[in-house]
């Protein structure tokens, strides 16, 4: 049965240890108490002894390498291994992530490879979260709406000076924060007849804009679907370049559903009924989006939402409820 040898924790605050030297080679026999390797911590260099009898099946970290505490750095097998191996934690220095802390340079492999002398650690200028920059660089960044933290994130060495502002400006624009959460989509189709009749009846009674009706129907559907106490609806009419906000438009009569302020939007209604578009959806947005199109004699409804904003049951109840209200608008008044 093979036994893992791990980097031991030799100090209270130690989180890694530098392997100064291996005292055994792959394939060597070891006995309990034999010195296996020397490790350098922040305080001292210590010898670590084998805890099992057997043979070195594998050395998994090289001399000069810094191994995290708990990392398996060798394997001791009970029987003499057929293919003893030796490897390193870091295969090649170039393979490390560009942003990663500089790793020790790896010298040519082999038992007699010279011990790499630990390079002096570069002063980490960002440990306290401050960015070192000249007053002028800060002023220029502020005036131009640039963030010096972007340079730090790119790994540009500090301190920053006015000349670094050019680098910062030339940097590709920060990707707009898209909601990249998984999205889901539901579609429905419903005849326009009921809604058209309802709308003409309503217009004879009181002049109610269509977005108010959309908002009211959507709010009622969402409230029924999610038991939400407050429902804020934004109605986008891209063809008219208008966005209207409604706070709880379903509470109270339609003619009194007054547009509210730009609040936290629960649902976006995208009214494409005055366009020739017959369907479609956007990517995820900050709120679920219900798109309304005309497709022949029908309304084509598409509900798009990010999975982190709504669950499927709510979404189904919302779209179904909205479609039912369009189909039989009088239900809404009941």
């Amino acid at each position: 049965m093979p036994h893992d040898v791990i980097m031991p924790a030799l100090g209270m605050t130690q989180d890694s240890g530098l392997i100064v030297a291996w005292h055994k080679k792959p394939g060597d026999a070891v006995a309990v108490g034999d010195v296996l390797f020397e490790v350098e911590t922040d305080k001292a260099t210590m010898e670590v002894e084998a805890a099992h009898d057997g043979f070195i099946e594998a050395l998994l970290a090289g001399e000069g390498e810094d191994a995290p505490v708990g990392q398996v750095i060798a394997v001791i097998s009970d029987s003499k291994p057929d293919n003893p191996t030796q490897s390193r934690l870091v295969k090649k220095p170039e393979a490390s992530e560009p942003a990663a802390a500089p790793s020790e340079e790896v010298t040519s492999p082999g038992d007699d490879a010279p011990k790499p002398t630990p390079k002096p650690m570069p002063v980490d200028l960002r440990t306290d979260g401050r960015i070192l920059a000249s007053p002028k660089a800060r002023r220029l960044a502020l005036e131009q709406g640039l963030d010096l933290a972007d340079l730090a994130a790119d790994g540009v060495p500090q301190p920053y000076h006015a000349s670094d502002i050019e680098t910062l400006k030339a940097r590709p624009a920060k990707a707009t924060t898209l909601n990249t959460a998984a999205i889901s989509q539901l579609t429905a189709r419903v005849s326009q007849d009921g809604f058209t009749a309802f709308q003409s009846w309503l217009t004879e009674t009181a002049a109610v804009p269509v977005e108010t009706i959309w908002a009211s129907f959507a709010a009622a559907s969402l409230r029924a679907a999610s038991k939400a106490e407050t429902v804020n609806i934004r109605v986008d009419q891209p063809t008219l370049r208008i966005s209207s906000f409604f706070a709880d438009p379903d509470l109270g009569s339609l003619s009194h559903a007054l547009p509210g302020d730009a609040l936290q939007v629960s649902l976006i209604l995208r009214d494409l009924t005055s366009s020739r578009i017959t369907g479609g959806s956007s990517g995820a947005e900050d709120a679920p989006v219900l798109t309304i199109c005309r497709d022949g004699d029908n309304f084509a409804l598409t509900l798009t939402y990010a999975l982190d904003l709504a669950d499927i049951d709510t979404a189904i109840r919302l779209l179904d409820g909205f479609a039912a209200r369009l189909d039989e608008p009088l239900r809404h008044l009941l």
Binding site: S134, P135, K136, A137, R138, R139, H161, A162
Partner: peptide, 12 residues
């Protein structure tokens, strides 16, 4: 005096 009065223009 330069530090006090031209601080935001200094690059060093």
């Amino acid at each position: 005096r330069i530090n006090e009065k031209a601080f935001y223009y200094l690059d060093a």
